[in-house]
Amino acid sequence: GTLHLNGVTVKVPSLEKAIKAAKKFAKKYNLEVQVHGNTVHVH
């Protein structure tokens, strides 16, 4: 999967790991997580 954090793109081995990391990051910075196919966006 691919993880987008505020314009930074990170390749992640699995989508589940990407979503987990995204949710952790989003919670910390009070951001929103959106999943588009195998790409996770945090903004």
Results as ranks from 00 to 15, higher is better:
25 F>H: 01
42 V>K: 03
27 K>M: 07
20 K>A: 13
40 V>W: 03
16 E>H: 12
10 V>L: 12
30 N>D: 07
3 L>W: 03
40 V>L: 06
29 Y>G: 01
12 V>W: 12
2 T>W: 15
10 V>H: 07
32 E>D: 08
30 N>A: 08
21 A>Y: 14
31 L>V: 06
5 L>C: 15
33 V>E: 00
17 K>E: 11
19 I>T: 01
16 E>M: 10
3 L>I: 12
30 N>H: 12
40 V>Y: 03
6 N>V: 09
43 H>P: 02
8 V>L: 13
14 S>G: 04
7 G>I: 09
14 S>E: 04
34 Q>F: 14
16 E>S: 12
17 K>V: 12
26 A>V: 03
22 A>K: 01
28 K>T: 03
28 K>F: 08
24 K>C: 15
24 K>G: 04
23 K>T: 08
38 N>A: 06
26 A>Y: 04
8 V>F: 13
12 V>Y: 15
22 A>N: 00
33 V>G: 00
6 N>M: 14
37 G>T: 04
41 H>Q: 12
17 K>Y: 13
29 Y>S: 00
5 L>M: 10
23 K>H: 07
23 K>F: 10
18 A>K: 01
22 A>W: 12
19 I>Y: 06
10 V>T: 05
29 Y>I: 03
10 V>Y: 15
5 L>D: 01
19 I>M: 06
34 Q>H: 15
31 L>C: 10
19 I>N: 00
8 V>H: 12
42 V>H: 03
4 H>Y: 11
37 G>P: 03
28 K>M: 08
5 L>E: 02
25 F>I: 06
13 P>D: 12
18 A>Q: 01
36 H>D: 11
35 V>K: 03
6 N>Q: 08
25 F>S: 00
20 K>L: 11
19 I>C: 06
18 A>V: 06
15 L>S: 01
8 V>M: 11
10 V>P: 01
29 Y>R: 02
27 K>Y: 04
11 K>G: 06
4 H>F: 09
39 T>I: 12
22 A>M: 13
22 A>E: 00
14 S>D: 13
31 L>W: 07
5 L>P: 02
35 V>D: 02
7 G>P: 03
33 V>A: 01
23 K>S: 04
3 L>C: 10
3 L>M: 08
18 A>C: 14
36 H>N: 10
4 H>P: 02
38 N>R: 09
22 A>H: 00
13 P>G: 12
3 L>G: 02
30 N>L: 07
40 V>R: 02
41 H>G: 04
42 V>N: 03
43 H>N: 07
32 E>V: 14
12 V>K: 04
6 N>F: 15
24 K>H: 08
11 K>E: 06
32 E>A: 09
10 V>R: 07
25 F>K: 01
32 E>Y: 11
15 L>Y: 04
2 T>M: 13
42 V>D: 00
24 K>E: 09
33 V>P: 01
33 V>L: 08
19 I>A: 01
42 V>Q: 02
33 V>R: 00
14 S>T: 09
27 K>H: 04
21 A>C: 15
